[in-house]
Simulated assay, not measured.
Amino acid sequence: MDEVIRPRVYGSDVDDPDPGPKPGHVYRELVGGPLDGLLLDVTDWTEPQRSAGAELRTDIGRFGPGGRARYAPRAGDPAHWDWHGDSR
């Protein structure tokens, strides 16, 4: 039998026994870059915040620990946020 793998939510602990999405929350899928495939919880974000995208901390991007990865909503498909590069 094939095992179904649930996507992991950005910011969840590696040791979290249930790092997947929670019922009643709103998520955006991160596409490309160092956080590819993770879900970002935007439940409490305003619509302008969601439209602006985000710079997310990551240790696995171009700049290593303390670096950030920039993601923004995909035109015509805001449920997917595309990677737009890394920054310090």
Rank of each mutant, 00 (worst) to 15 (best):
L40P: 02
G33S: 11
Y27K: 05
G67E: 05
E47W: 06
D59H: 07
P21R: 06
D36A: 15
S51W: 00
D82I: 08
G11R: 01
P19H: 11
S51F: 00
P19M: 06
L30M: 09
Y71G: 02
F63I: 01
D86A: 09
G61M: 07
G66P: 04
D16F: 07
V42G: 11
S12D: 04
H25S: 12
L30R: 08
I5L: 10
F63K: 01
H80L: 08
I60D: 10
P23D: 14
T43M: 09
R62E: 15
H80Y: 00
L39K: 05
G32T: 11
L56C: 10
E47G: 00
E29W: 02
D82G: 14
R74I: 00
G85Q: 12
D59V: 06
W83R: 06
G11K: 02
R28S: 05
L56Q: 07
D77C: 06
K22E: 14
D41G: 08
D13L: 13
D86S: 12
I60V: 14
P21W: 01
P65F: 11
A75Q: 12
V14P: 00
G11C: 03
G32N: 11
D44Q: 07
D2M: 07
M1T: 09
R62Q: 15
G66W: 05
T46A: 09
E29S: 14
L30P: 09
D16S: 14
R88K: 15
P34F: 07
R70N: 04
A72D: 01
G11D: 07
H84G: 08
K22H: 11
L40E: 07
R50T: 09
